[in-house]
Write a protein that binds this DNA or RNA. Structure first.
Lengths: 149, 149
DNA sequence: TAATATTGCTTGCAAAACAAAAGTAAAAAA
DNA sequence: TTTTTTACTTTTGTTTTGCAAGCAATATTA
């Protein structure tokens, strides 16, 4: 199923791809929590069911937000990594968190409010860039370790 | 049903509220296309079904993103207006459109690419602020016309 | 004023998406 | 070589979505 779009509106088209409860949560887990294997995702606090995880990972790969690889020394464990298209979602995630921070605490008082949130509040663009750079470094390290094998 | 949250993560919590195919499309229609009545929404190009529209409007109201009013001279037509909490979604919408612009054209070449998109590309923050200010002016005008009656 | 149209829904039903639990096959570890 | 781990798939519901029709209250037109 090659993604279907409702119309030519850029807002709506983004939601045709990203508009559900899981897609961006998976991207967040990769970008912020460093998850990269099927098992990693099943162990997250959001507790996604394995059948849904499998279908969403497939969709993310089809759209080009992630790629699926393996480390040369391990034939079993798949590695799911963000592409540039996936990394470009960082500013959306940051805006989502910022909106929660400012507008959801009245109906959901236990939303975390740590040091990272302070940084995010202070400069959203810088926060998003930091996330992307950190992930790019990780990607570079992963690639390097693969070539060493 | 008072909104349920999966966990205390600000990213995930935003998606608990906004993560579906319609919520942000309705907000977009209000903020960008100036829609404000039930009929307005049913006539949009995204063609939402009336039962889904009704349920989503209810949810948006419960969460506090919109309010439902009437003009004093018309007892039939409901007016749905964005609250501050709803207006604060503008930066998210802008980031979504920006991501589409830069990352979806390969699989969806007919995404619109007009003058507005150029402005958005040029300065996302300014674009979001302009949207919010324009809507606030409209709100002020609506309120004023109500007091005149 | 009576008939007609409009607005804002609700209801019923089929299809698709989501979810919990269990099962499975290949690879890795003991 | 047995056990465990990883990455799924399958099965069986339940919930959400979507289409079509219906309906009541208000507004408009004749």
């Amino acid at each position: 199923m090659p993604q279907d779009f409702r119309c030519n509106c850029p807002f709506t088209s983004a939601l045709d791809v990203l508009g559900d409860k899981w897609i961006l949560v998976i991207v967040k887990q990769m970008l912020i929590e460093g998850k990269e294997t099927f098992k990693d995702f099943t162990e997250s606090e959001e507790a996604i069911a394995t059948n849904i995880l499998a279908s969403k990972l497939k969709l993310l790969e089809e759209v080009g937000i992630i790629i699926k690889t393996k480390r040369p020394e391990n034939k079993k464990t798949n590695l799911y990594l963000l592409t540039d298209k996936g990394l470009a979602l960082a500013p959306i995630l940051v805006e989502l968190a910022s909106w929660s921070d400012g507008n959801l605490r009245d109906i959901h008082p236990t939303i975390v409010n740590g040091e990272a949130m302070e940084l995010l509040r202070n400069d959203k663009t810088a926060f998003a860039n930091a996330l992307m750079n950190k992930y790019k470094e990780k990607l570079a390290a992963t690639k390097a370790s693969m070539n060493n094998q």
